[in-house]
Structure formats: C-alpha cells, structure tokens
Amino acid sequence: MDIFVQQILNGLVLGSIYALIALGYTMVYGIMGLINFAHGEVVMFGAMVTITVISAMTNAGIHLPGGAMVLIALMVAIPACMLLGFTIERVAYRPLRNAPKLAPLITAIGLSIVLQQVAILIWGRNYIPFPPILNHDTIDIFGATITQLQVLIVILCLVLMAGLLLVVEKTKLGRAMRATSQNPGVAGLMGVNVNTIVSATFVMGSGLGAVAGVMVATNYDQAHYYMGFMIGLKAFTAAVLGGIGNLGGAVAGGILLGIIESLGAGYIGDLTGGFLGSNYQDIFAFAVLIVVLIFRPSGLLGEKIADRA
C-alpha cells in the first residue's frame, strides 16, 4: 500500500511536469498543426539558464533564500526561453507555413540538433548539478514521503495550467487563438493577425517550458544538454494521449502518463514475475499510448473527426 501511494505521488509530480510541457506542444499543434520538435530544447535551455544565473549570483556573493534565488533566475530564464521560442518560429517555421508538413518537421529536428550543440558549446557535455540552495525537507502522506519542493512543483503546475486555461478561455487573445486554431483563413479575414497569434502561442508555450525545465532540474537535481529530448518525447506522447490540440487533454494526458509510468516502474517486477524490471519504465509511456490510440484514434479527449465524403 505504501508503495502504491508513493508511486502515485511520484507520478503526480512527474505528470504535472509532463503536463506543463505537453501544453507547449499541444498549443502549437492546435494553432499550426505542427510538432514543434525543438520544444524539448527550450525546456532544457530553461533549466540551464536558471542554473547559470543562480551560480552567477552565488559567485557574486549574493545569498538569498533558495526560493528567491530560483525566482530571480526564472525572471531571466522565462524571457530568454520566450525569446528562443519566438525566434524558432520566425526562423524555422514561419517561412514554411504553406509547405507540406514534413518540411517544418525536418527543420524542427535540425533546429533541435543545433540547440543541443549550442548548449554543449555553452555548458559542456557533462551533467550540471543544481546548486544546493533548495530545501529538501519531506512531508509524510499516508505512509509515503514527498518533498516540500515536489508539493510546490505540483501546485505551481496547477496554477500555471489554470492561468493558461483562463487566458485561452476568457481573454481577447485567447479567443483569437481559438479562432485561429479552428480556421486560420477565416480568423485572418475576421481581423485576427494570425502571425501575432502564432508568435504569442510560441512565446506562451516556451515560457511554460522554461518553468518546466527548472522543475525537472530541481526534481532530479541536475541538468544536461540532452535532457530535453526524452522529457520532450514523453510530454509529446502525453499531448497525443490526451488528444493533441486540446489543452485539457494535454493536462490529463500528462498527469495520467506520469502516474502510469511511475506505477508501472513500481509494479512491473511483480506483474511479470520478475521477468521485466523497472528499467522497462520507458516502455509504459509508449505502450499505453499505442493501446489508447488503437481504441481512440484521436486521443482521450480529442475530437472524433468523421470522414466526410
């Protein structure tokens, strides 16, 4: 039972981070129908920039409470990632907006490689530890333990997701985004500046990605130039699982994926009589995805698109 609660809690933490990143994928997909393969790298940059800023402050002799240091660093990392996201769209995607789908996919992959290499140039190939400034005190819940930091991560994720939903549902910008995602041509005719909306989407998604990157780095206590790849892949899987293009779906898919992965890792040994161990954790994400898509080809919350003759 303890293991069960513990794995649920771990899954919730992991899942909220997936959800936050998945939102970035799903927003872009909703607006442009494009997999922004470089989004994982934006997440990575968020983590790297934050660590760099914190280290710089420590080196300069500035010692504030850990939370404040992270917050200050985020004030740098978020705009930096927003700028990065904005630039990615302008340079690699906008010129190809009317090209067939595979062209932007290839530029996205190329860009992903470029960003990783740039990260190596700046931060090297090694794992970078997260500065030991954060409190790792734990809380006991039903016999399972969770750090206060992890609680904070989950809460912050929920707040950010709620904020995003509010923006999309209630503001003028959000309405324009929804209109563009349904029909860019008509939205354009109705006076929506599609370019602005697309840029705004990338900027918002990248901002969330930056925060998620910091969460990943604090949760695992390290960052690495390649970290964006797997987490991006998982988050994208989560977005598809939930029904890509659907914000609620991304959140549900992310949390679900986190919990399934974590439960799977905890129980796979028992389930297979010891044949498969927790090193198969990564299989769950993909196995679940495949099973869900077989039964619901548009994801859990995706619209069922009927074939029109």
Binding site: Y29, G33, I35, K101, L233, F236, T237, V240, I244, D282, I283, A285, F286, A287, L289, I290, L293, I294, P297, S298, G299
Partner: peptide, 21 residues
C-alpha cells in the same frame, strides 16, 4: 496492424514509440 486507423502525426508518434520499445 494496430495503427491502420491512425493518421499523420498520431501515426508518427506511435511508430516512434514502437521504435523506442
């Protein structure tokens, strides 16, 4: 066989997952 009904990017991500598995 299982991905017959999937289209476009859904197919892409499932094949990707298959490769990883």
């Amino acid at each position: 066989t299982p991905v017959l009904k999937l289209k476009g990017d859904y197919l892409a991500i499932v094949t990707l997952g298959f490769g990883e598995i």
